[in-house]
Amino acid sequence: MSAVMKDNDWIRIGMLDEIPRLGARVVETEKGNIAVFRTATDAVFALHDKCPHKGGPLSQGIVHGDRVACPLHDWKIQLETGLAVAPDEGCAASFPIRIEEGIIYLSLVPNEGCPDTV
């Protein structure tokens, strides 16, 4: 693949293989980190790497199902929406991801629905 950009919004961040299953890698940006998670079924999600509780780095948590457990106090955050699992409340901003031929593209325009921003 030589074409890096699909359109103005999508940034190529790496290959699917570079993220371990049930794990995460970090995209460093000037405004803060974005955690990119890969589930057991190879779904990929991106969240602001900052737990809505006390800012724990979600990228360091244990990924299970469609959730990640924050490493600091074990809140569970939904990977797709960034919402904390009830009864906890709050959310981490989530970002669109696209995968084509094993290449992961990220958009830095957060999904709607969460007031958190990077």
Binding site: V4, I13, P20, L108
Partner: peptide, 18 residues
């Protein structure tokens, strides 16, 4: 090594690079 390094570092100029 993947544990200790970001998958990518973006600064504004790099946004369009791979």
């Amino acid at each position: 090594a993947h544990e200790f390094n970001p998958i990518i570092k973006l600064d504004d100029s790099m946004k369009r690079a791979s």
